[in-house]
């Protein structure tokens, strides 16, 4: 490939990468891939890509007369960088599906990715506004767990059940993303629900009920005593960001 064509191809790819990132930031679907605190960095980078594309494009014209620079471009190198653009624009933007939990495992009380010793913010939320992540955090970092018993709970997540739970129990889980989807870890709360067996694995449900405390391997964990479990469509933003 000539230098001129190579530079044009480079400029095109840079512009497409930049535009892809900008379009995802604009539509909000960027949050299907990364944690929100990196969005500004990605925004700056996408502007950088567009500027780079502009410079490369103008350079294409300025170097074309210069015969001594006309070395060959390796086209296979450029093809690799076309992959993210192709996958990005062509594969429908979808979050990690709950079935990925089979490969990744689920955790009930793992020390969390963003530790907060100060639970004040979470305590100030009304109990029904707290997410799965909030509840697990509260139970990991609060002194007095008795205060939560019998508080109302209203969480949404996907159904996960495995052999370690009893017939009348299932877990309601969510993926948490600290950086990007590559580090997605599922967190789950155990739910007591007599008809747990009829729930379909990996479907989304809204669980309402009361908080209880259970002991497992010497640790105190939150337990939801469910009054109602209803099937719901997947939420717009399926991940929780610590």
């Amino acid at each position: 490939m000539t230098l001129r064509a190579g530079r044009s191809f480079q400029a095109l790819l840079m512009a497409l990468i930049g535009l892809f990132l900008l379009s995802r930031i604009w539509s909000g679907t960027i949050l299907l891939y990364i944690n929100q605190r990196f969005v500004f960095l990605v925004f700056l980078a996408s502007l950088g890509f567009v500027i780079f594309a502009q410079v490369l494009y103008s350079e294409r014209l300025s170097t074309q007369n210069d015969e001594k620079h006309s070395k060959n471009f390796s086209i296979s190198t450029l093809w690799w960088l076309a992959l993210p653009v192709l996958i990005g624009f062509l594969v429908p933007a979808k979050p990690l599906s709950p079935s990925a939990v089979v490969n990744r495992g689920i955790s009930i009380d793992a020390p969390l990715s963003a530790r907060i010793e100060d639970t004040g913010v979470l305590l100030s939320l009304s109990p029904t506004e707290r997410t799965v992540l909030d509840w697990i955090r509260l139970f990991s970092f609060s002194e007095n767990l008795e205060q939560f018993v019998d508080q109302p709970v209203d969480v949404t997540g996907f159904v996960f059940s495995d052999g370690r739970l009893s017939e009348s129990q299932f877990m309601v889980g969510r993926f948490t993303i600290t950086c990007c989807v590559a580090d997605a870890t599922a967190l789950g709360m155990i739910v007591d629900y007599p008809q747990a067996a009829v729930l379909k694995q990996h479907t989304w449900v809204r669980v309402q009920g009361k908080i209880g405390v259970m002991e497992r391997e010497g640790r105190l964990l939150p337990l939801i005593l469910a009054d109602s479990v209803e099937a719901v469509p997947p939420p717009e933003q399926p991940y929780l960001f610590p």
């Binding site: 995802r24 990364i34 594969v91 979808k94 990690l96 079935s99 950086c179 590559a182």
Partner: peptide
């Protein structure tokens, strides 16, 4: 198809996250 979308989510996640730092 579920594998394909999970794969592309993780792939794009790593790429989008790392590209600014590479730049």
């Amino acid at each position: 198809t579920e594998g394909v979308s999970n794969f592309s989510a993780v792939f794009l996640g790593i790429f989008i996250e790392a590209a600014p730092y590479l730049l």
